[in-house]
Design a protein around this nucleic acid. Sequence first.
RNA 1: CGGGGUGUCGUAUACCGGUAGUACGCUUGCUUUGGGAGCAAGAUGACGGAGUUCGAUUCUCCGCACCCCGACCA
Length: 413
Amino acid sequence: MRQSQLFTKARREAPADEVAKNAQLLIRAGYINKEMAGVYDYLPLGLRTLTKIIAIIREEMNALGGAEVLLTTLQDPQPWQESGRWSDEVVDVWFKTVLKSGTELGLANTHEEALTRLMTEHVSSYKDLPRYVYQFQTKFRNEIRAKSGIMRTREFIMKDLYSFSRDAEEHQAFYDKAATAYERIFDRMGIGEQTYRTFASGGSFSKYSHEFQTVCDAGEDTIYLDKEAKLAVNKEVYDDPEVYTSTGLDKASLTEAKAIEVGNIFTLGTKYAEALGLAYTDAEGKPQPVFMGSYGIGPGRVMGTIVELLSDDKGLVWPESVSPYAHHLVSVGKDEDITKTADELYEDMQTHGVEVLYDDRGLSAGQKFAESDLLGITKRIVVGRDAVATDIFEVVDRASGAVAKVPRAELLR
RNA sequence: CGGGGUGUCGUAUACCGGUAGUACGCUUGCUUUGGGAGCAAGAUGACGGAGUUCGAUUCUCCGCACCCCGACCA
């Protein structure tokens, strides 16, 4: 895309009402816009990064055998009443609305109820199991206090996968595979090294769950980690001796750290299946409740975490896997032949299907470089006088600052 | 939800009970182009309501919005 056609503009100043680094940089760079507290728009560059994050998660979910769906945001209260979670006293993050008729509806904060009810239509035999269903879907949570930029918002997209297994054993095998897939996801997004599989409370779902916590000072959670084992324990269960017997961790050797919860997986057991009548007939002809699990990742929160972790004093820094474009083509100088060379390279890259954002604006070199740094695109290709003369281009790695001289043909691969 | 705080051009800020200033951005013109260019000329602003006052952007109250700390995070 030509940058002259991009409607967003980079800003020099961060808005005064944002303290979180992720929101400051993403707003300055024009990736997101704040509508109100805890509610953000994704603008073209931000959407591209979000889409790439989603694509990586989707690949890994598909590799697990997941089937993608898109359930509704407006939710029928009935299954929630059956599970006992319709009351605001039980779930305090509800947004609810009413039909003209006066009937109450819920705005989805999660989808256990809706999907479990849906599955009763499709699961009746042990031959129908196991099944894995997931989606990327908007969740609404009426947080009392939104904070930390895009990390804790009232409206956000969530990847939620639900597993439907015959029994605890079959569930556990998938649960472990899902945990491994999660680790691969965070690796692919450049935050794997700092991300720990963390033993945590299961909230209202189960006694325990596993969180994926990325060590970062901007985090809201406190965890205790074992770097060798690459495991951690959330503060909320730190004093529970059972945690250490089941994980084999040595409490005394753990070190404290702040961390961001980028994912959470739960063993749900048969609670929802029993409440909503999701059962199957086993090989002996006996009815059995389905054994469930749920697995969440917030792509927006992951995006914020990457910003918190990898940005530098000049701006954003994206790993190639989630950079809005792979290349930022920047022309410097107004000479006709420089513009011509840059235009031609841009067209070439377009026809070869190489991702590129082309800064074709007539701004000073300094301003273009400063904005390019702020945008954080992985590789910057500079077209100046040298490039015109030699057809060899300067390629700068945003993260390291390393400069390479690359002939045109190589840029088209 | 408890406590604290803030609302001034698009953005960031300054000052003030009596004509609201600066920087960036924006418009026009000329020059400039490898690290947020220069000169000149412009346009644009006090969250809403009530009160106090001769006069309120400034003080008071109410509302709304936003931020921070804590609690909460199914």
